[in-house]
């Protein structure tokens, strides 16, 4: 474990807590894309399949349980909670996210480190996570006024993988044979997808204005 990866995990945890806080306290999921939340639930379900077969540390297992539990409970809240589900803008959240799942699965079947069931699904989860934010970014561009919590949620979610990139550079420099191109490229693409959001988020923070993405 290094400081970059710890910062990445804490940022990721913070993004999940911000979203749970928003949904649980003000009972609203306005501006949040259910499609992105569903994709993230699939990402964690396919990435943490080894939670029962391999144990690395209490921290590792605990964080996996937190990410699995939070992502599925957010989907549950947005789909079934009587108050929250009414605040979900179904008409705006129209990204065909299933069109993201299939190409990622096909790509994982073509490009992976080992052709085993767990490894292919794990690789699939990497590719899917890289594009999982797209429905949310599209929804943000359609929603005129983005509330602070939703903006912070997306900002933290984008930032965590950026810290992971620093972690991979650090591990590449300090650990022999630590080379994982698939993880690195997927992580880089994922972070780059946030580039324009980060730009407008920073602008709104600098000019102390409401965050608005150009349509």
């Amino acid at each position: 474990m290094n400081i970059f990866r710890l910062a990445g995990d804490m940022t990721h945890l913070a993004s999940v807590l911000v979203l749970l806080l928003k949904i649980h306290t003000i009972k609203s999921c306005a501006g949040v894309s259910l499609k992105t939340q569903e994709l993230y639930a699939i990402v964690f379900a396919t990435r943490y399949l080894d939670i029962f077969t391999s144990f690395y540390s209490i921290y590792n297992t605990l964080m996996k349980l937190i990410f699995l539990g939070s992502s599925f409970s957010i989907v549950w809240y947005m789909r079934y909670h009587k108050t929250v589900r009414r605040t979900y803008d179904r008409e705006q959240d129209t990204f065909r996210h299933w069109f993201l799942v299939l190409p990622c699965l096909l790509l994982a079947l073509l490009i992976h480190e080992k052709f085993t069931f767990l490894e292919v699904l794990w690789t699939f989860s990497l590719y899917l996570e890289a594009v999982a934010i797209l429905p949310q970014l599209v929804l943000l561009q359609r929603t005129r006024n983005i509330d602070n919590l939703t903006g912070q949620y997306v900002f933290l979610l984008g930032g965590y993988r950026g810290f992971y990139i620093l972690n991979w550079i650090y591990r590449y420099l300090t650990e022999p044979h630590f080379v994982h191109w698939i993880t690195w490229i997927a992580g880089l693409v994922q972070t780059l997808l946030y580039a324009d959001f980060f730009y407008y988020y920073f602008q709104s923070w600098k000019n102390n204005k409401k965050l608005q993405l150009p349509a």
Partner: peptide, 10 residues
């Protein structure tokens, strides 16, 4: 058996 890639990252 090839040493499986340590998946110690989240």
């Amino acid at each position: 058996l090839t040493q499986s890639y340590k998946k110690d990252e989240l």
